[in-house]
Nucleic acid binder design. Structure first.
Lengths: 187, 187, 187, 187
DNA sequence: TATGAATGAGATTTCATTCAT
DNA sequence: CATGAATGAAATCTCATTCAT
């Protein structure tokens, strides 16, 4: 792995373990096993580093969300695919997921980055799925971004409870989550 | 307003505007219009200050959630009251709401504080409401904490989209949110 | 003496002893006997500090140049007063003099500062003295700034040779310098 | 041009533009268009590089000063030749001239280098010219080094005023400088 | 209580130098 | 010879905290 990757991975680890406000460069260098000046070959400062980590995590998640997505499948099948992919991303990559969740609404992340779409256009896909469902009279009429927030909010919240071990997250809960988020937006 | 209140208000303002990691004491003193030593008459250090602000916000929210709560009302009326109170708290006190939301899972807040209940027992009330609904066959069987996360996640998420001006949040959206969260957990 | 004065005096000392490029903050703090953060209460950074020291030295020299200056005295008496004052300033305050001499034409000093006049208007006095002498047919016609440089250049150069102990600088040499600079600009 | 020459030229340029204390190796490499390790093939460290640049500039100036010098010419002709050569060197090679002027008394330059004479013995020539003039009763009796400083000081000072565009430096001013420096040391 | 100049530990950042290619 | 990524010692700078007033 390249030094740059080492640094970004160590950054994500430390933010997850101790929170951004206690990530110092010296902890970072030790963790990433690089010299103290090395970071400046890649990032002008801490803010740029954190933004780069955020961007990479978003790209990773965007990629993951589209796994196995079949544009020809039924509306519900596609909904289910997107919701499950998101949940599984949160289960498989808790550090990335929590980091994105915490910083998406933080002043640390620039608004352009917050509103970025990814190469697989996962954001657009969700939004157009919602609009399509509304056109077919299956999903309730409402602002598509609002609807987007509804179904994602459920996943985030369920994952956070799982992360602090309020409950397990196995097939039963996964089905409950899926059902809840689908029923929430049906007409 | 007392010096102590000035300091706590300035802390919340700055956390909201720039994020905890960029709140420095010198910014705080300028904003609160107090001398740099004054804070130490009230708080032993920065962590204590932030915890005090968190505690106050939690108490404020706990109080707010129980406004107009009638234990004799119908299940749905009580559900509606709690959900609307929470949403309205987020609308009326965005700084408090976001602060609680961001730091509830942060290492900066002591675990005892994170798990605190308030004098009005708002957390317990929600959980027992869920259990009661399940006993009556109205709410779907699932872990009550899981269910709690579902309905709160919707509110948090909807509010965050509103905060970044993705959409307005007037009576129409409020009703949509209410309906969505109720349908999400019905049998 | 105030901390600010301590810092500025230590800066001048160190620049004189080791040159600007080897003045580090840690040497500065030790020499000035202040804590490492103290400087930032007074100067935003090193450049501001050096500029402040330069400005103070210029003010000091401007003050010194006008000592005993009698506007009613004869042209030569006034010339002599100004030249002697400048030379004596160089003898009495070698650190200030050399610092001004070295940095006046260095990119480190902002052009506004280089061209500053002082409250006693010593620069203007010299220039108008030259113009007056030219009007009376005593001093050769030439650009007054050019003439200014001629007579100051002699002093600077003589002082620098003295500083490295090429020769002593007692009454004999002082009279020789005075005579040379006067003859240099006569018609 | 060789890499070595590129590096030395870039060093002189940067010192002229920003001052020695802000010449960093990374600026140097970019300017000289060489890799960061290349310099160590030619110079052991920064100090050696700067000393090499100083030495080359001194040799260049020493060579230049003796241009067209005719040992058989009259005393004034020889004086004039040396003074004009020095002035013209300053006009044609401002970076070299200023660099020599600034660093001749700086601790960065080793003392042996500061006191070097050049292969054309320009320093000795000036000093013996002064002594000869005094023997013939043309130049006023004074320490020859002192006299040397007088006439060089005029040139340096006039050049520095010209560099910061206080006045032009064409034939008129050149003659005025020549006359002034000659009259300054006549009996 | 309230203040704010002073502090210094520790954070960030720079930059001359090395070394594998 | 030439390169430039990597280094880490040393520099600059920040900021929570103290303390005399």
């Amino acid at each position: 792995m390249s030094k740059k990757q080492d640094i970004m991975a160590a950054t994500l680890d430390l933010i997850h373990e101790e929170g951004l406000q206690s990530v110092t460069f010296s902890k970072l260098f030790k963790r990433a096993n690089v010299g103290s000046g090395t970071i400046y070959n890649y990032f002008a400062n801490k803010e740029e580093l954190v933004n780069a980590v955020y961007k990479e995590a978003r790209l990773h998640m965007g990629e993951y969300l589209m796994q196995g997505y079949d544009p020809e499948a039924s509306l519900y099948e596609r909904f289910k695919c997107l919701q499950l992919n998101r949940l599984r991303f949160g289960i498989d990559f808790p550090k990335e997921f929590l980091f994105i969740d915490s910083f998406s609404y933080s002043p640390y992340i620039s608004p352009e980055l917050r509103n970025m779409d990814d190469p697989r256009h996962s954001v657009e896909v969700v939004l157009s799925l919602i609009v399509e469902g509304q056109k077919h009279g299956v999903i309730k009429e409402m602002d598509s971004h609002f609807c987007h927030q509804l179904i994602h909010g459920i996943i985030s919240s369920v994952l956070k409870g799982y992360y602090v071990e309020k409950y397990p997250l196995n097939e039963i809960q996964i089905q409950q989550m899926l059902e809840a988020s689908w029923k929430a937006i049906l007409v």
